[in-house]
Design a protein around this nucleic acid. Structure first.
Lengths: 228, 228
DNA sequence: ACCTGAACACCGTTCAAGT
DNA sequence: ACCTGAACACCGTTCAAGT
């Protein structure tokens, strides 16, 4: 189809083509061989620009999150009210997911959290903390809202993701590296680590997060009962 | 491994083996060839008991929902308080999902909602309506809580799922067939159809559902603010 | 540096053939 | 009725070879 076979093969062009292919025919249609054909080349050529199928999918997940960031940037300055800001960000995230129905499944199937997501989290935490939420509450909000937009966000910052070791030292190091770029996230993690220093479990107790969100919903429903 | 090669190949045994295989090595390990090998037979023999790979996965999704039902049954009589009942059901659903980490992804990747899920929905709606929630609110609750337990429940009762036609007639027929088995769900759908008879869109306006859940969470977070 | 052909070890599935 | 071998059209990936 492409009369533009002249365009040089690049990582970025491959990712765009892969995303378009997934939009049109589903994520199942994105195979190395098919993607190569779509761009007028043999399957093996892709390995010069991508580290393999799994890396392709990781990059694709990253791309979706970046698309959300672009959407947020295009929406203009953030509302000063934290609720409005958070609400708008969630709705924009959803609108992107609707454009790419394969995206939620892809993101939640990957073990690694897309790095672009951290900027998104930082903005959310910043907004919420300025709005009067504690770091603890902001953390829970991240899980509650994240599970809405993505389907599931099991463990946002797993120590295991950074390296093999599960000890607190590794977590502290990770923290220091993030401090400059993501100050609010760092403060949040530090506050949580300080409160309950449980080195064995990951510091995201997903059972607690689940129950928190569940009770938030049940409280809300109770308040809306007709006979209340 | 199986010294029990004597056991006759049956649909049920295949599904059990497939579930165990997914538990042990992930859903990716569940291939027709591997499943066959696991049970001491050639891949092609599976087609005598299963309609193919896609059917296998559908049945596997069904099985997980049935496991939740069994868990609920084992937990004894339902609490009379609607909140306690709904809460317990959600937590039990989650505990099953934790046993089968592949399950949420599988269920949400299937286009069809497992039929066993309707009994689950019926019980939830019944509990909530008795608790004073309107059918409308119960419907929204189903979406909000469903997205928690499964990651996502896009369209619970799509008219398209029943057949090709999207008109209200087909929906009415579907309704009549369900009335005996699932009276509360039927009443809920009837109430919703009556309120806003929008025959073009599916009656689950997922954008509205999303915003409803989002606002429920934001309201709850606002109420928990430290400076409130 | 970038692309390729042939090859390897996998998929799901069909079909004619065995018992 | 149930199982199988060979075959087909696919996968992702490696590797030596081309330019």
């Amino acid at each position: 189809m492409s009369t533009q076979t002249r365009a040089p093969l690049s990582r970025d062009r491959l990712l765009s083509t892969a995303a378009a292919l997934a939009d049109a025919e589903g994520l199942g249609a994105v195979t190395m061989r098919r993607l190569a054909a779509e761009v007028g080349v043999e399957a093996m050529s892709l390995y010069h620009h991508l580290p393999g199928k799994s890396g392709l999918l990781d990059s694709l997940a990253e791309r979706v999150i970046e698309e959300i960031a672009a959407e947020v940037a295009a929406a203009g300055p953030a509302p000063q009210d934290w609720r409005e800001d958070v609400r708008r960000r969630c709705l924009l995230a959803r609108s992107v997911m609707l454009r790419h129905p394969w995206a939620p499944g892809l993101v939640s199937s990957r073990t690694e959290v897309p790095v672009a997501a951290y900027a998104h989290f930082e903005a959310l935490v910043d907004s919420m903390v300025r709005g009067g939420l504690s770091y603890h509450l902001a953390h829970r909000a991240l899980h509650a809202l994240g599970s809405m937009a993505l389907g599931y966000v099991s463990e946002i910052f797993s120590p295991a993701a950074a390296g093999g070791s599960t000890d607190t030292e590794a977590a502290e190091e990770q923290l220091a590296a993030m401090a400059d770029v993501f100050p609010q996230i760092t403060a949040m993690v530090a506050a949580e680590l300080h409160d309950h220093n449980d080195p064995v479990l990951g510091w995201c107790d997903s059972q607690s997060e689940f129950e928190f969100t569940l009770d938030l919903l049940l409280d809300g429903l109770d308040r809306l009962r007709s006979d209340a």
